[in-house]
Design a protein around this nucleic acid. Structure first.
Length: 468
RNA sequence: GGCGGCAUCGCCAAGUGGUAAGGCAAGGGUCUGCAAAAUCCUCACCCCCGGUUCGAAUCCGGGUGUCGCCUCCA
């Protein structure tokens, strides 16, 4: 497998720290609000990366933090007029719900910053002892100049940074790019007792402390959105390596940003999309398809048209499964050479830095073969089986049975009513009263019930537009 | 100002030296009373200029356009 490492700016052969195992960490949300569609991309991308490693036979340990103490949370608690712990409780619950709605498998670990306060304090003290950190009136800073490799991830040099300097003035800092390890509490703010007085940890420290606790001193993959490269991950590297004297992460993976109609998403610009709102309007699989149709490192542009296209594409995939009556198949036949070959192609493209766009094309190939009436019944089922197997690696087809039987859950009375209408329509058809026959069909369609005249009679089904 | 990405059919998007995957949409055929669904067929020389090469969308140089990071941010 080859994966792109931000650190080296090239694809590298993936070699795990421990054979057969993958330890990965992804920067999770700060729970001060519902997460947005851009966050959703990161969640889905790393969900797929994790699923693929598992599919490849690796035992994966996946940790994703929840930042539950931070300036933004304090600000939100003032806005909403509720204590910070209520803010975090509210948005953690929402986060977990939305994660599920997105068909993202929950991480193995979801550590919260507040559960690691004492360990962070110990960590910061150790940095202080090693001479990488200094205290200034209750705040503690990391001295970036002490860490020679600072900037190696983002390709920035301290000299260059100086020139562009858009950094906040802070005369307590010895150097403008020194970052906060411990922040002194202002009156009324949440606080913990520490050697430097009451305060709270800075943002960059939690990921270092929690990842080493859960995944070990050196682990395989650390991920996050592209914007975290600098300064967040740069600062993580500085702390982590200053602490233990060697790299702690082997592969740094970053997903590209999501734009809205070509513009960066921002609340002030009014083009801000909360994931749960989008999920209310479109099925998770359409959103997932949209994310995976482009390589995870490239920027992606979100708009209504794209999601509609994605939805149509996902439906095409499902129609293949309906075609072979997948739901009612018992023992699916074993793969023959053709399916094996397609599966190998899937492995090849996914091995190449998770090329989900090409992987999706292979899904369509399997779907096409599953529908191809020239194939034997057995072969069609084999391809359908492959479609489901590979599609699941990308996170599609969750609760498949439920989705394929959509419409069958309609209550008995309603169903009989529809059947009744159909018998009337049948009579009209016999009389060649096309006007009325068509009216029934059109009116039902408006109610979301689609009719299909077949030689065996008229079939009806619920329009799955909203459900896939 | 510093650093980096991208530019491929109407739309989305793979492909990084050997003659353009896939999806959506569109057009045509089959099926149908008409539809729908399904199915078959059709649909691009890759931003511009120059260079390297037997051969470039793919490499190099220049240009134009566009996006991002350098501040909290996925």
């Amino acid at each position: 497998m080859k994966i792109y490492n931000t650190l080296s700016r090239q694809k590298e052969e993936f070699i795990p720290v421990e054979a057969g195992k993958v330890k990965m960490y992804n920067c999770g949300p700060t729970v001060y609000n519902y997460f947005h569609i851009g966050n959703a991309r990161n969640l889905v991308v790393f969900d797929v990366i994790r699923r693929y490693f598992q599919f490849r036979g690796y035992e994966v340990s996946y940790a994703q933090n929840i930042t539950d103490i931070d300036d933004k949370i304090i600000a939100q608690s003032i806005t909403e007029g509720i204590p910070t712990d209520e803010v975090t409780r509210k948005y953690i619950t929402a986060f977990l719900e939305d994660l599920d709605k997105l068909d993202v498998n929950p991480p193995d670990y979801q550590p919260r910053a507040t559960q690691y306060i004492s360990q962070m304090i110990n960590f910061i003290r150790a940095l202080e002892e090693k001479g990488y950190a200094y205290e200034a009136e209750g705040d503690v800073y990391f001295a970036v100049e002490k860490f020679a490799a600072y900037g190696k991830l983002s390709g920035k040099k301290l000299v260059d940074l100086k020139v562009g300097a858009r950094v906040e003035e802070n005369e307590q800092k010895r150097y403008p790019f020194d970052f906060t390890l411990w922040k002194k509490a202002k009156p009324g703010e949440p606080k913990w007792q520490s050697p430097w007085g009451e305060g709270r940890p800075g943002w960059h420290t939690e990921c270092v402390v929690m990842s080493r606790d859960l995944l070990g001193e050196t682990f395989d993959i650390h991920g996050g959105g592209n914007d975290l490269v600098f300064p967040h991950h740069e600062n993580e590297i500085a702390q982590g390596e200053a602490y233990c004297g060697h790299p702690t992460v082997n592969y740094w993976l970053h997903n590209g940003f999501l734009n809205i109609e070509g513009e960066k998403m921002s609340k002030s610009a009014g083009n801000f999309f909360i994931a749960r709102d989008v999920l209310q309007k479109y099925p998770a699989e359409a959103i997932r398809y949209f994310f995976l149709s482009k390589h995870y490192r490239s920027p992606i542009d979100f708009n209504e048209e794209i999601i509609q296209q994605s939805l149509a594409a996902v439906k095409t995939l499902y129609s293949a499964l309906k075609d072979v009556d997948y739901l009612n198949q018992q023992d699916l036949p074993e793969y023959s050479e053709a399916q094996q070959k397609l599966k190998e192609q899937f492995l090849d493209v996914m091995d190449d830095d998770f090329n989900t766009a090409r992987a999706i094309a292979l899904l369509f190939e399997a779907g096409k073969e599953a529908r191809n009436k020239d194939n034997s019944e057995e072969d069609r089922l084999r391809f359908a089986r492959l479609l489901v197997e590979l599609g699941s690696v990308l996170g599609f087809f969750r609760n498949l049975a439920e989705k394929l039987s959509a419409g069958e859950d309609i209550s008995g009375k309603t169903a009989s009513l529809i059947e009744l209408l159909l018998t009337y329509r049948q009579d009209f058809k016999k009389e060649k009263n096309w006007q009325w026959a068509d009216k029934i069909r059109n009116d039902l369609k408006e109610l979301g019930i689609n009719l299909k005249d077949t030689p065996q009679g008229t079939e009806w089904g619920i329009d799955e537009n909203a459900k896939v």
